[in-house]
Amino acid sequence: MGEGRGELETLTQQTLADRLRDEFVGKPIGEPYEARDPVSLPMIRSWCDAMGDRNPVYSDEERARESIHGGIVAPPTMLQRWTMKGLSNEGPPQAGGLGSRLVEALEGAGFTSVVATNCEQEYTRYLRPGDHLTGTTIIKAVSDEKKTALGSGHFIESQITWTDQTGETVGTQMFRIYYYKQAEKQPSSTAPRPRPAISDDTRFFWEGASGKELLVQRCTSCATLRHPPRPMCANCRSLEWEPAPMSGRGSVYSFVVHHHPPVPGFDLPFVVALVELEEGVRMVSNLTGVTPEEVSIGMPVEAEFVPVDDELTLPLFAPRSAG
């Protein structure tokens, strides 16, 4: 999966794209850009080092001299490299660059990140040390605003033509790049768990959990257990109750697996289970120590008190051996 670049959706807002098309498409970016240096052996050798390319006609002067070339030639795929800027990244737009006005327009609209998506090169003539290239870039297309896994942005297509010192074309390149604004970060499991809403009715339950005790309400009139906490007994309508400790043992009465959307504080997917305690009351919680595929109805489980951070201990349920 990773950072996919597929186009997922076309947005309706097109004003920036229209404006960029009017201003830039079909026009060259700046003046033709003359390479700072001619094609040279040291640069060819650096390239071959980086690519692990041991083709002798690129870097072995003696063998290249004996070959049909009578001397070193440059790897065809170095084409664009000759008109790249120096490492200071200063000066006029390089061939392949979009030029400052287009880049500023995109960055000004928040599209500050860039990836390349398509490249098509054609090698008309091979190059030798001493050849001196000039590149001319024309913007061919600006897409409407698109949405990809990286974020929303615009695809920009450019066409570069390189000529040599005599003005003859030596190669061409179509380059498609994607200027985008980073997608909003997904909520991650590093976020804190949501806090329980604690009331006078529920405080005993959370205090019990922090002391590793699983407590539910027991009516002091008729001894009926109830959960979740509420003021009145459904059996005898008494308002009197006391907290009663449970064994913590039970079984999965029902469950769902949450796959989407992401929830802060949770790793996806997670299991939400309705656990029936052996004392008879049912309790909603998460299962732990088990994958969603392994969960089944009736699975024996046991309470586990998980301190999720300094303030909060949660009673979760983990599988136990039956019996």
Partner: peptide, 9 residues
């Protein structure tokens, strides 16, 4: 000639 499409980084 080379034509390539980079689907993911």
């Amino acid at each position: 000639r080379l034509r390539f499409r980079m689907r993911s980084s």
